[in-house]
Design a protein around this nucleic acid. Structure first.
Lengths: 119, 119
DNA sequence: AGATCATACAACCGATCGGTTGTATGTTGT
DNA sequence: ACAACATACAACCGATCGGTTGTATGATCT
């Protein structure tokens, strides 16, 4: 499904979008709901004390980050959470933890060489 | 060291700060370095093509989020990554995954109930 | 003491963010 | 056909972001 020629967004761009999408409590709450079950955009909007347009923009941010996908069903747009995107963030954090473990153990040599190539 | 009376920041505030801090590639790179070993602020600043003040602000954002701590050593301020903060983010993501797993369990139950009804 | 280094912080600037209102475009039900 | 609903999107606004320059304060070294 992923085409590296058309989808030439860098890893850093992806992570920027993912963490930015998660850095808002309303979006985290929306994500919780759509991971549990499908919701239409207006069903989501009904849960929050803000305009429909505001919620729709939050959904768009989550969708752009890949944390949520939409499927049409009549006049409604049903949204569901993408657990694989959540896992990809968790994987990145696991790599950070691994770097820290290297600080204690000897994996350091490999990772530090990567990080310090410029000096 | 944590006092729930004085440090009355909500969980959502903490997560906002954590994800916001991680939503910048320069800060993620700084975090990788300080997780691997201690760095002074100016040692970090030397690695990036931006002003010292800019890097110092990035360090401050990471520190405010609890992802990094400082300790004085002479005229230098040595910074090191706080792996426990990284783990707290990973834990939150694991909870999201758990919500999704609940969704799967419920769909499974529904399908099982359907099958029961059919035969 | 004076010069230099390491850090902190304020003020400013263009861009982006999170919200609003208003409008346009389909889709559904009568 | 028409009214009501669901969604999308543009324009706007105050606040925050990520960067800059400039200045102030300590700590270190001759």
């Amino acid at each position: 499904m992923i085409c590296p020629v058309i989808d030439d967004e860098s890893d850093d761009d992806r992570l920027d979008a993912l963490f930015h999408a998660l850095a808002d409590r309303t979006r985290r709450d929306i994500l919780r709901r759509v991971l549990a079950r499908e919701h239409s955009v207006s069903a989501l909007a009904a849960k929050y004390d803000m305009s429909f347009a505001a919620v729709q923009k939050h959904v768009a941010v989550l969708e752009k980050a890949g944390l949520l996908t939409k499927r049409r069903s009549g006049r409604e747009q049903l949204t569901r959470g993408e657990v694989t995107a959540v896992r990809s963030v968790a994987t990145m954090l696991a790599e950070l933890e691994q770097i820290w473990h290297g600080h204690v153990a000897r994996v350091d040599a490999l990772l530090a060489a990567d990080l310090d190539l410029e000096d």
